[in-house]
């Protein structure tokens, strides 16, 4: 689960459980049940809106000024936990039915035992949680926690993101670039160097107050650096893709040339349009390109000694 050592996280159920524990703590959800590989969380409204896909419900709640009971998520992190907890919930249900005597017909028909949901890779809930985390963790302004406030902080701009190398398929790398606001020094893998620090929030004004270069200059430095990195990097994939595309286009063109004669002149226009369309689709699909996605931005004040 340590982001420092794992390039492709959340592949195991243990990682996913730890992630969710951290996430729900950070967004202020209450844990009301904690058993092996199983949690029950009560959601604050803002989190509820992000994790459950029911915009019309919330519209109705707000329009009619309802106070609604907060949603409880019952999350099982593996199949075993799901079976165990579902059975447990079914038992509770039987008990409550027994206690609620006499039962009305409606009770029997419509009261169903509560169900847990399995949180695995690709599940709706985990997708929503990841999306929510990404949105909530876009920007931050921090400095390492210390009992004695630092007198002098070195101001840094950190940007994290993805480079997507795209042709007919895609390959992505995650990067973190730090720019020192004193001298525009660039440090790669910046996040990995500071991720272990215990941080506390601070104000952007304080960080910027220490800077000798403007944020725009620093931002510019990041983009230039990343662009150069791509240009200087291994572009064999792009070269290959380009050759392949040229081949494919040549084949397509040759085909349309060879059949043109079989068509009466009045249909050639149509044929040519078809040709152009297919050409376009091929180009769109296979042209090599790079997409730089800026995912996170942080302003960080580092005391001199932690900065190595």
């Amino acid at each position: 689960m340590n982001p420092l050592t794992n390039g492709h996280p959340l592949r195991t159920s243990d990682e996913r459980l730890a992630f969710c524990d951290r996430y729900f703590a950070a967004v202020g959800a209450d844990v009301i049940c904690k058993r092996p590989m199983y949690r029950e969380f009560v959601l604050p409204i803002d989190v509820d809106k992000e994790l459950t896909d029911r915009p019309f419900y919330w519209m109705w709640v707000e329009k009619t000024n309802q106070t609604v009971e907060p949603t409880t998520l019952r999350l099982a992190f593996d199949q075993e936990a799901k079976l165990r907890e579902d059975e447990h919930l079914a038992q509770l249900h039987q008990q409550s039915l027994a206690e609620a005597q006499p039962l009305s017909g409606l009770d029997i028909l419509f009261r169903k035992p509560k169900q847990t949901e399995l949180v695995d890779l690709g599940s709706f809930r985990l997708d929503k949680i990841l999306e929510s985390a990404r949105r909530r963790g876009q920007t931050v302004c921090v400095t390492p926690y210390s009992e004695h406030p630092h007198t002098q902080l070195i101001p840094w701009l950190m940007t994290n993101g993805l480079t997507r190398y795209v042709t007919d398929s895609v390959s992505e790398t995650w990067w973190s670039i730090g720019v020192c606001l004193l001298n525009l020094q660039i440090v790669e893998s910046f996040y990995n160097k500071i991720a272990h620090l215990e941080m506390t929030g601070t104000s952007p004004q304080i960080i910027v107050g220490q800077a000798k270069h403007s944020l725009l200059e620093a931002a510019d430095a990041v983009t230039t650096y990343l662009s150069r990195l791509v240009e200087q990097g291994d572009l064999a994939w792009a070269e290959e893709a380009r050759l392949r595309l040229a081949d494919d286009l040549a084949q397509l063109d040759a085909y349309y040339r060879s059949i043109e004669a079989d068509y009466p002149p009045e249909e050639r226009d149509l044929l040519q349009r078809e040709h152009v369309k297919k050409r376009q689709a091929l180009i769109e699909k296979s042209t090599p390109r790079v997409e730089m996605e800026v995912a996170q931005i942080a302003l960080i004040g580092l005391p001199l000694r932690t900065h190595t």
């Binding site: 985390a133 990404r134 973190s176 952007p204």
Partner: peptide
């Protein structure tokens, strides 16, 4: 960040870290 005056605390740092994990989790390496 500079002008909206949002204040940050340690929970934002936690979310920032989680967001980094989330982005990496959805990556096609």
């Amino acid at each position: 960040m500079l002008h909206l005056g949002q204040s940050y605390d340690h929970r934002h740092w936690e979310l920032f870290q989680l967001a980094a994990i989330a982005t990496q989790a959805n990556m096609a390496p």
